[in-house]
Write a protein that binds this DNA or RNA. Structure first.
Length: 822
RNA sequence: GCGGAUAUGGUGGAACUGGCAGACACGCAGGUUUUAGGUGCCUGUGCUAACGCAUAUGGGUUCGAGUCCCAUUAUCCGCACCA
């Protein structure tokens, strides 16, 4: 090999070495502390993008560093390989989804390997393979047996482009999260997982995750959307059923002057009186034309329509009209509200428009507010008025008291309401896990027998991209027998949302080849939880909430001790180019393959870790990459020169000033790199900058007279060790050339010499009234008093303070002396 | 509207518990090695002619503030007729 930094051959050589020697294979070991680092597994699109490179580089540095620190590191990789693109390829190009997917995986795996990532490929999982989805089906059945899976007819989100239903979480701003098509509503019978049963735990346990970004926890809290309040029953005249409403403001019941139902509310049909039928029909018609996006817009004018019926205020006895209106949603609370115009801005606007009474029940006690003629709803705190026996009470107190009163009278109760809905997991698509349920005319829905799993995805199907699930077109799939009574029965033909697959893959890695159970208890409990999870913030709600839900259910099934899957979470920033997200349409994509080809994987990794802290967005810079490449070349030349010039005859001259200074820098670098890498900090950029300083210092030192190359060699050893997690290929190569045996991956992380960090003298700053005026070198161990004395005795300082009244001297040993003068 | 974040040179970004603001790198400028381009190496680089002034803006606490407190502004992100 030549003396040039030939990254191509170096990277090939070591990637082959790692593979042939099973360097990254991991086994359970009770004598070692475990560390499980995981990056979100990719969908195999076939092409690696810079976001992947960043994600996996962060994970790989962490894995390699922790390995060198002596941990037993689990660092696996796999494929979230079910999903629509494979099926769309089948529709468009006639390729079989399984072949398309496996080709993509092969290609992406090749690209991942070219990055030099330290994965234990023996634990690779593919969610589309039957050895994995067998257990996804098995989990579905366990959920079903626990009453956590059910089928229900409901108005569901339908994406007309993807031709399938979507979970609430997959609808963003009224559009399909995948294809951005506006989502419509469809009345369909679908399978749900009962995540709402876990709403409170999912909320509470967020507080047990100090290693998660506040942002993600807040997003989950908002999504779960807990609100405390009361359910209250209102009587309706000439109607035998009671109208149940939810409110967070039971204190305002005396101010209720109207009731409003969502137009979809089941009572509406019965409540509309003949005189108002035409009006209501017209209103409903108008609503039909509104998309979900428009319906939920805050700027949409509140419109409603009187039904002709009247309800009775249970506390005041007041007779109040019942309306339907566009601003009341069927999928929150009970789909009906009590209207208190005086104390709710939306109700106020509605009441103004339709001439509904406004009765204030909370006194603002503000002379500027005219209670008889409110200009706006009053939503702040105050004392109760117009509320019978509750008058004079603070309204916060009244929430409690009126709720108690209502409960006593049996017309309502205190409740907690969640915004979170159950998770709709049915998809009318082919490339997913078949739902292992069977419909029997006699027994109803029954789960497939566990010994019959996996229910294989049929291959004799037609891909049209339209209508029902392609599984319906299979001649072999649908017909079966009832597992209970043995009579002919029909299989469910929908498949599962792919987010189900990714809700438990991190558990499977702990025992990826188990064909008796999803994972053995011993193994899963040895490795779980994931100590560090790394991925994009786009999964803040969807994947991260579902995975938490699954872990809790699996915990409750007694299969794993962990109650939370991910101890620490790092949401890495996006990779931008020229300030905008890399995308085909903008045409600013930088291809990882090209970068690796031009500069090597080590340069790509180094740049991406150096250019910005991992949680921030990173603007790709071509000149920045050149800089990282230059640095590695600089390291290469330096180490090679040291190897060449060190003849092993160490002069014993390490006491010299220059030698001490170099030794100091080396230890300082090791300390700074170690500190930056310590858990939760992710200071890769500062770690690298510190290594750069060491390299600069080594260059400077080697040009000094009689430079000691034996000392330089020991610096080079440490330099290579410190650099190895970031740039593993050059790390291995230089480690070998420095005369060491075996992989640098198995070396211990270098300890630094604490005593070398204490210098004989230290430069301190002399300030006058907080402004730096002078610098001087003093010996290190001085006390406060000694330091002030030394400084005040200095000639320059004397000159500076001459003729001025010294009021106070503040001395900070090792740092500065501040002289306060008048 | 509610919530979360961020704000430091021409640029990306450093600055641990309040203690030398601008580490490290990019860019730029000058020099130098080389037949030459590139590479390498060296020097300079916040603003100001200067006393000085500088961490989004205005106040405050402190001997001392990028860092703590109060207010304001801008940008990004999430949620949003949630009763």
């Amino acid at each position: 090999m030549s003396d040039k930094y030939d990254f191509h051959s170096i990277e090939d050589k070591w990637q082959k070495y790692w593979e042939e020697n099973d360097v990254f294979k991991t086994v359970e070991d009770d004598n070692k502390e475990k560390y499980y680092v995981l990056e979100m597994f990719p969908y195999p699109s076939g092409k690696l993008h810079m976001g992947h490179v960043r994600n996996y580089s962060i994970g790989d540095v962490t894995a390699r560093y922790m390995r060198m620190k002596g941990f037993n590191v689990l660092h696996p990789m796999g494929w979230d390989s079910f999903g629509l693109p494979a099926e769309n390829a089948a529709i468009k190009n006639g390729v079989r989804p399984d072949i398309w997917t496996h080709d993509n995986i092969a290609e992406m795996k090749r690209q991942l390997k070219s990055l030099g990532l330290s994965y234990d490929w023996d634990r690779e999982v593919m969610t589309c393979r039957d050895d994995y989805y067998k257990w996804t089906q098995w989990f579905f059945i366990q959920f079903y047996k626990k009453g956590l899976a059910y089928k229900k007819k409901n108005a569901v989100n339908w994406c007309p482009s993807c031709q399938t239903v979507l979970a609430n979480e997959q609808v963003v701003d009224g559009r399909c999260e995948r294809c951005k098509t506006p989502v419509g509503k469809k009345e369909l019978s679908q399978w749900y997982l009962k995540i709402t049963d876990y709403a409170q735990r999912l909320l509470d346990d967020l507080d047990k995750l100090p290693g998660w970004p506040e942002k993600v926890k807040t997003m989950q809290k908002n999504w779960i959307g807990r609100s405390e309040g009361a359910e209250i029953d209102f009587e309706i005249e000439n109607f035998d059923k009671k109208l149940k409403i939810f409110t967070t403001r039971p204190d305002t019941v005396f101010g209720v002057t109207c009731m409003v139902l969502a137009p979809e509310h089941p009572f509406v049909k019965e409540l509309v009186t003949p005189e108002h039928q035409a009006e209501v029909d017209a209103f409903m018609d108008k609503l039909q034309y509104l998309s979900d996006i428009d319906r939920s817009s805050t700027t949409l004018e509140k419109e409603g329509c009187f039904t002709g019926s009247y309800a009775v205020n249970p506390l005041s006895g007041k007779r109040v009209p019942v309306y339907i209106a566009n601003y009341v949603l069927m999928n929150y609370g009970t789909g009906a509200i009590m209207v208190v115009p005086a104390h709710d801005t939306r109700d106020f606007a509605f009441a103004k428009k339709y001439g509904i009474d406004i009765i204030p029940v909370v006194d603002p006690e503000d002379p500027d507010i005219d209670l008889e003629n409110l200009q706006d709803a009053f939503v702040a705190e105050g004392n109760m008025i117009n509320s019978g026996e509750f008058n004079g009470m603070n309204n916060k107190k009244a929430i409690e008291k009126i709720t108690e009163y209502i409960e006593k009278k049996g017309i309502g109760k205190k409740t907690v309401n969640f915004r979170l809905r159950d998770w709709l997991i049915s998809r009318q698509r082919y490339w997913g896990v078949p739902i292992p349920m069977i419909y029997c005319e006699h027994c109803g829905w029954v789960p497939e027998k566990e010994e019959n799993l996996p229910i294989m995805l049929p291959t004799d199907v037609e891909f049209t991209g339209k209508g029902a699930s392609p599984l319906a077109s299979s001649s072999t799939f649908g017909d079966t027998v009832c597992p209970v009574c043995g009579r002919p029965a029909k299989r469910e033909i929908d498949t599962m949302d792919t987010f189900v697959d990714s809700s438990w893959y991190f558990l499977r890695y702990t025992d990826a080849k188990n064909d008796k159970e999803p994972f053995s208890k011993d193994k899963v409990n040895y490795w779980m939880n994931v100590d560090q999870y790394i991925g994009g913030v786009e999964h803040a709600i969807l994947h991260l909430l579902y995975a938490r839900f699954f872990t809790k259910v699996i915990h409750d099934l007694g299969l794993v001790d962990a109650e939370e899957p991910f101890e620490n979470l790092l949401t890495q920033g996006m990779v931008l180019k020229d300030g905008t997200k890399m995308s085909k349409s903008v045409g600013n994509i930088v291809s990882p393959v090209e970068i690796i080809d031009k500069y090597g994987a080590d340069t790509a990794r180094l740049f991406i870790l150096f250019a910005a802290p991992p949680d921030r967005d990173l603007d790709w810079s071509d000149t920045g990459v050149e800089g990282s490449f230059r640095f590695l070349n600089r390291v290469w030349r330096l180490v090679l020169e040291i190897i060449e010039k060190d003849d092993g005859t160490f002069s014993g001259n390490a006491e010299g000033k220059e030698e001490k200074s170099l030794y100091y820098q080396m230890n300082k670098t090791l300390k700074r790199v170690t500190d930056s890498m310590s858990s939760g900090k992710f200071g890769f950029n500062t770690a690298i900058s510190s290594i750069m300083e060491l390299v600069n210092e080594m260059y400077r030192y080697k040009e000094t007279e009689n430079a000691d190359y034996a000392l330089l060699r020991s610096c080079a050893d440490n330099l290579v060790l410190a650099l190895a997690p970031f740039t593993p290929h050059i790390g291995e190569e230089l480690w070998q050339r420095l005369g060491h045996e075996g992989s640098v991956y198995f070396e211990k992380w270098p300890e630094y010499d604490e005593s070398a960090l204490v210098l004989d003298t230290v430069e301190i700053v002399v300030q006058l009234n907080g402004k730096v005026k002078h610098r001087m070198n003093v010996s290190t161990g001085l006390s406060r008093e000694e330091l002030s004395e030394t400084v005040l005795a200095d000639e320059t300082v004397k000159k500076l303070t001459e003729g001025r009244n010294i009021r106070k001297v503040i001395a900070v040993p090792g740092k500065l002396v501040n002289i306060v003068v008048g």
